[in-house]
């Protein structure tokens, strides 16, 4: 499911005093199997952007093409598109409604008209993928912890077996452990299934070590687009819009300012550690 955004703009309440341009002239193409991080400040338009990708909203201008479906075409069938492009909303646990965990996860597959045995299999599979024990199936989703509810909601989208999975701030409001758990699961999902994953976040830290490409959105426009190492080289421009770079990169940046001979970018603390030790050895060797 390659995705192609062509000169896309989106305006909320056009023609009223509440008019707001959320996106302007976005060009973006996403290939199969990519793992993309979309980063931007609150209100930068990133949530609007992802809703365009499964036809929940349609561009005011330009076209969004997913596979061979153009969302603005007349008589376009959106349900198959929404099956192919799974979207997990921010605070997805707020959408839970069913009496049991299993019934909630089955909602999507049920809407696709699958038969009961297939649905049951998908519910199990989705629960295991997000790391929920199968004993929880008959529990009420409202008895679970916040992190578990979030995972039920993600499982509900996964059960539709999308080829593109979009997660809007999947870790917002979770404790560090819940956050790591979810991010690790998403990483594994991408590796094992080879599906396209689009992760929306305002935190560089979360995305840096996971994704292979970062798209920075600022005031409705694409500011940077490239592999993390490339994007993090522009630390000044990123902190200028209040985003900053991962801690590991920040340490190296400050060392370089202090005259140390270290690379400009590290994605993890371990990597930065390696660079620093090497530079340290080099220094002591010279002395």
């Amino acid at each position: 499911m390659p995705i192609q955004l062509n000169n896309v703009s989106f305006t909320y309440s056009p023609g009223t005093p509440f008019e707001r341009h959320a996106l302007r002239g976005i060009n973006l193409s996403i290939a199969d199997g990519e793992f993309i991080g979309i980063i931007g400040q609150t209100g930068s338009g990133k949530s609007t952007l992802v809703q365009l990708l499964n036809g929940l909203i349609k561009p005011t201008q330009g076209t969004v093409r997913v596979g061979d479906v153009t969302t603005t075409d007349k008589g376009v069938r959106l349900r198959p598109l929404r099956q192919m492009v799974g979207l997990v909303f921010q605070f997805a646990e707020h959408q839970l409604f069913a009496e049991t965990v299993a019934a909630d996860i089955a909602f999507g597959p049920l809407n696709l008209g699958l038969d009961p045995s297939e649905i049951a299999a998908r519910v199990d599979e989705a629960m295991l993928t997000v790391g929920l024990p199968l004993e929880m199936k008959e529990r009420s989703p409202f008895e679970l912890s916040g992190g578990q509810m979030r995972r039920v909601a993600i499982a509900g989208v996964l059960a539709m077996r999308p080829q593109v999975l979009i997660l809007d701030e999947p870790t917002a409001g979770l404790d560090p452990r819940g956050r790591d758990e979810i991010l690790t699961r998403i990483g594994a999902l991408h590796r094992e299934r080879g599906i396209t994953v689009i992760l929306v976040s305002h935190s560089m830290e979360d995305i840096a070590r996971l994704v292979s490409r970062i798209v920075v959105i600022h005031e409705g426009e694409v500011l940077h687009d490239g592999p993390p190492r490339e994007v993090f080289c522009s630390a000044e421009s990123l902190s200028g819009i209040g985003l900053g770079v991962p801690q590991a990169t920040e340490i190296l940046r400050r060392l370089r300012l202090a005259g140390w001979n270290v690379p400009a970018v590290a994605l993890t603390l371990a990597e930065a550690h390696g660079f620093i030790v090497e530079a340290w050895r080099e220094r002591s060797g010279e002395a």
């Binding site: 349900r79 929404r82 799974g86 979207l87 959408q95 999507g108 809407n111 696709l112």
Partner: peptide, 11 residues
Amino acid sequence: KIMKAQLARGA
């Protein structure tokens, strides 16, 4: 928002 979330699940 909830409507959109359920639409995304094929509602």
